[in-house]
Simulated assay, not measured.
Amino acid sequence: MRFKKQKRHRKTVRFYTACFGFREPFKVLCDGTFIHHLLANNLSPQKSVSNTLGGDVQLFTSRCVIEELKSLGSSHAESFHAARKECKLARCEHEGNKSALDCIIETIGKNNSEHFFVATQDVDLRKRFQKVPGVPVLFGLRNALFLEQLSSFQREFVKSAEEQRLRATDLDRKILQKRAETILKSEEEGDASIVGTGAGDEVARDQVSVNKRRDRNRMEVKDKVQFKRKRPKGPNPLSCKKKKNHGSSNPKPEKDDKTGGSAQRNRPRRRKRSRKAKTSSGTEVASS
Rank of each mutant, 00 (worst) to 15 (best):
M1Q: 07
R8C: 05
V13K: 01
R23W: 07
F26T: 00
F26N: 00
K27C: 01
V28C: 02
L29I: 03
D31W: 02
G32T: 06
I35G: 09
H37I: 05
H37E: 12
H37L: 00
N42I: 02
S44K: 09
P45F: 06
Q46M: 00
L53R: 00
L53F: 01
G54K: 03
D56A: 11
V57L: 06
Q58K: 10
S62M: 14
C64H: 01
I66R: 07
E67C: 05
L69P: 03
L72I: 06
G73K: 00
A77I: 05
E78Q: 10
E78P: 04
S79D: 08
K85L: 10
E86R: 07
C87T: 08
A90E: 14
C92E: 14
E95I: 13
K98H: 15
S99A: 11
S99G: 15
S99L: 10
L101W: 15
I104E: 00
I105N: 02
T107G: 02
T107F: 01
T107P: 01
T107N: 09
I108T: 06
K110V: 00
N111V: 12
F117T: 02
F117C: 01
V118S: 10
V118E: 12
T120E: 00
Q121V: 00
D122R: 15
D122G: 06
V123G: 13
D124V: 12
R126A: 02
R126N: 10
F129I: 07
V132Q: 12
V137P: 00
V137A: 00
L138V: 05
A144L: 07
E148W: 07
Q149S: 09
L150A: 08
L150G: 04
L150N: 04
S151G: 09
S152Q: 05
S152H: 06
Q154G: 13
F157E: 09
F157M: 12
V158D: 01
K159C: 01
A161L: 05
E162M: 06
E163V: 03
Q164Y: 08
R165F: 10
L166Y: 11
L166I: 13
A168L: 02
I175H: 08
L176I: 09
E181K: 08
E181N: 04
I183S: 14
E187M: 11
E188L: 11
E189Q: 06
G190S: 15
D191W: 13
I194V: 12
V195C: 10
T197W: 00
G198C: 03
A199E: 05
A199K: 01
D201E: 15
A204R: 10
A204P: 10
R205N: 10
R205T: 14
Q207N: 08
S209H: 12
V210Y: 09
N211P: 05
D215A: 13
D215M: 15
R218L: 05
M219N: 11
M219K: 13
K222S: 01
D223M: 08
P232Y: 14
G234M: 14
P235R: 09
P237G: 01
L238Q: 11
K241R: 07
K242Q: 12
K244Q: 06
N245T: 11
H246E: 15
N250D: 09
E254Q: 04
K255G: 08
K255A: 03
K255W: 02
D256Q: 02
D256P: 09
D257L: 01
D257A: 00
D257H: 04
K258A: 12
G261H: 04
N266P: 11
P268H: 11
R270L: 13
R273L: 04
R275V: 08
R275W: 12
A277D: 03
E284R: 15
V285D: 03
S287F: 11
S288F: 00
